[in-house]
Design a protein around this nucleic acid. Structure first.
Lengths: 120, 120
DNA sequence: AAAACAATTGAACAATTGTTCATATATAAC
DNA sequence: GTTATATATGAACAATTGTTCAATTGTTTT
């Protein structure tokens, strides 16, 4: 059975309501990026890491692992995805990698999420 | 190979830094809920739906499908997950279901994400 | 009554995800 | 040099996810 999401939906001219919303829609890649941003914070291990880095500006991998209660490996893997998603940055001193939040934007977005969960 | 993320990490007493952050950590289910909140917005189809509902208070399923350019079925499935996650509510009039955002919290969180993507 | 319509739903499927385990780098200490 | 330490990484695996397709439900129209 064919669905009809083309330019009209039964009547000749599409509802102005639909047309006006359509005009405000952003590009495909915009929504992709938006979803990716939220996805970066959509895993408990990652929210724990971000939360920890909100408390303490800089933490090394094994300290984070100890704080959030997971293995170094799992922590390192998630830190890598957080790095790819530009949520954290790091600088390596000797054999130790110090991680921190990438910018204050992250803090705001994360804080808004915190508020949402706490006021429930 | 054993990893040691127990209460000390090589030295006898754990760094005070780590201990102090540990004290601030929330429960497992808190981080679970936090992650779930972000996860609700971590899919492009869902961000499109939410964006559309930010423009127009109430929209029916087929209008949303038309606006975001997907099938009614895919839209309905995602609306169901958004309902389960308490991001949208709906009321049915005859054969038409009118969806809207559940509360203003969602708007704030979503807007913060938008800002993050736009200022890039 | 039947047909048309809006929405929902379940099953199936490919794709993605997060962890574990083992191994590999790289640096520091000896 | 060797050994210990901190981190990173690749492969494998189970689990979850989003879409499609087909069928279904419930409502309105004829």
């Amino acid at each position: 059975m064919k669905e009809k999401n083309s330019d009209n939906e039964g009547s000749f001219v599409e509802k102005e309501k639909v047309q006006s919303v359509k005009k405000t829609m952003k590009t495909e890649s915009f929504f992709h990026n938006l979803a990716e941003t939220f996805k970066a914070m959509s895993d408990p291990t990652r929210t724990k890491i971000i939360y920890a880095l909100c408390q303490e500006k800089e933490l090394c991998v094994s300290d984070i692992a100890s704080i959030i209660g997971t293995t170094n490996s799992a922590t390192s893997h998630q830190l890598k995805t957080l790095r790819n998603m530009k949520l954290v940055k790091y600088n390596k001193v000797g054999k130790v990698s110090y991680y921190s939040l990438d910018d204050m934007h992250i803090n705001n977005l994360f804080a808004e999420g915190l508020r949402h969960v706490e006021e429930k």
